[in-house]
Computed example of a mutant assay.
Amino acid sequence: MSANRDHLEMAFHSISCFGNDGRLDATELDRLVAIAERDGIIDPDEIRVLNNIISRVQPHEIDAAMKARLDALRRKIGPAPVPAT
C-alpha cells in the first residue's frame, strides 16, 4: 500500500456523493478523480477505489455527461478488473 492517503479521502468523499441523493453524478466523479490526480499520478490504491465507486453506479443513472466522464476515466485507468469466479 502506498504512503499516499488520497484513496482514503476519495472513499470518504464518495459516501457523501452517494448519500446526498443515492447516486454519483459527473460533477461528483470529477471531484473524486481530481483527488486522485492532484499528486500527478493515479496510483493502484486510487484505481481500486475508483473502480469500487464506479461499480456502484447503476446503468440507468448514466446520462451523456456521466458516460463521457466514465469513458475518459477508463482510458486513463483501464477497464475494471473482472472478478475471479
Rank of each mutant, 00 (worst) to 15 (best):
R23P: 11
D25I: 00
I41C: 09
R48Q: 02
D21A: 02
D39H: 10
R56E: 12
V57T: 08
T27R: 01
P83W: 04
R74T: 13
F12M: 12
H7A: 15
Q58C: 09
N51R: 09
V33K: 08
S55C: 13
I54M: 14
I15E: 14
R69I: 01
G19E: 11
H60K: 09
K67R: 07
F12S: 06
L70R: 07
K76Q: 12
D21K: 04
D39Q: 05
D63E: 09
M1E: 07
N20D: 12
C17Y: 08
L50S: 04
A84W: 13
G19S: 10
E61R: 15
E28C: 02
R69S: 08
L8H: 03
S55L: 03
V33Y: 13
V57Q: 11
A34Q: 12
L24S: 07
I62N: 10
R48M: 09
G78R: 06
Q58E: 10
I42A: 10
E28L: 01
E37C: 09
S2N: 09
D45P: 00
D71C: 10
N52L: 15
G19F: 01
P83L: 09
L73F: 13
D21W: 00
A26E: 06
D30E: 12
G19W: 04
M1F: 04
M10L: 09
E28A: 02
K67F: 07
G22C: 05
A84V: 08
C17V: 11
R31M: 10
F12T: 08
A84L: 12
A64D: 12
V49Y: 12
A84H: 14
A3R: 08
D30G: 02
I15W: 06
L8W: 01
L29S: 07
M66F: 07
M1P: 00
D45K: 01
I41L: 11
P79I: 03
S16F: 01
S14R: 11
A26F: 02
A11R: 03
I53R: 15
A26Y: 05
D71L: 11
I15A: 08
H60G: 06
A65E: 15
I54A: 12
R56Y: 05
F18C: 03
P83Y: 12
Q58W: 11
E28Y: 00
M10C: 05
K67I: 08
D43G: 01
P79E: 11
E28W: 01
D45V: 00
K67Q: 15
R69W: 09
S14E: 06
P59W: 14
D39E: 07
A3N: 04
G78D: 08
E9H: 05
P79T: 05
N52K: 10
A34M: 05
D6V: 09
T85K: 12
S2C: 07
A80I: 04
A64K: 11
P81G: 09
